[in-house]
């Protein structure tokens, strides 16, 4: 660079010098552009869930006091969840359905854990637009299929929390969970 700076510019105006200078200008602009792009990443990423929110990803629930036929509402990642102890009749009703006729075909066995088929654990978030369906509380409307009923737009879920009627596109979502003992289930 030093030689170019001190030399008479008119003499250096040949093709070689111009090309080299253009290259440096383009490189400088390119590097500045790359830097600006990289700087945007943290500015965008800061809006993702923070570490304290991400840490809420697992919760232990004591299920010892839930009688067959009862359900409780709890929370996981600040979302409501249903934990339901199915009666043998409800299990039979769910298994009697021809899966291929369902909008979101799944069997009850696919939606519960082996050895704990009576425990139906789902998000309490209607897959239509996110309302909390009724049916977990004592005396609430369970809808036409005996499971859950969403009062917002009339979606009805059956005893395996599968969508049977109304606008919801999918069954209530089953979160990841494991039974850490017979009475405690860890969600997440």
């Amino acid at each position: 660079m030093a030689t170019v700076e001190q030399a008479d510019p008119v003499l250096k105006e040949d093709g070689e010098g111009v090309r080299r200078r253009d290259f440096i200008n383009i490189a400088a602009l390119g590097v500045a552009g790359v830097g600006a792009t990289i700087a945007v990443i943290p500015l965008v990423n800061q809006m993702n869930p923070s570490a304290d929110v991400r840490a809420l990803s697992s919760v232990d629930i004591d299920i010892s006091s839930i009688q067959p036929g009862q359900a409780i509402k709890s929370t996981w990642r600040k979302q409501p969840i249903f934990v339901r102890n199915l009666t043998p009749k409800e299990i039979a009703e769910a298994n009697a359905v021809n899966v291929s006729t369902l909008r979101d075909p799944q069997t009850l066995a696919e939606r519960t854990e082996e050895g704990h088929e009576n425990w139906l654990i789902t998000l309490a978030v209607c897959t239509h637009l996110g309302c909390i369906p009724l049916g977990a509380g004592e005396g609430e409307n369970k809808g036409a299929f005996g499971g859950y009923f969403c009062p917002c737009h009339g979606s009805s879920y059956d005893t395996a929390a599968r969508i049977r009627q109304g606008p919801a596109p999918r069954n209530l979502e089953v979160p990841p969970y494991t039974f850490t003992s017979d009475t405690v289930v860890q969600i997440g």
Binding site: M1, I24, A27, A28
Partner: peptide
């Protein structure tokens, strides 16, 4: 690079 580009522009 910015310095070199600056000198180029002013040459």
């Amino acid at each position: 690079l910015g310095y070199m580009a600056y000198r180029n522009v002013w040459i």
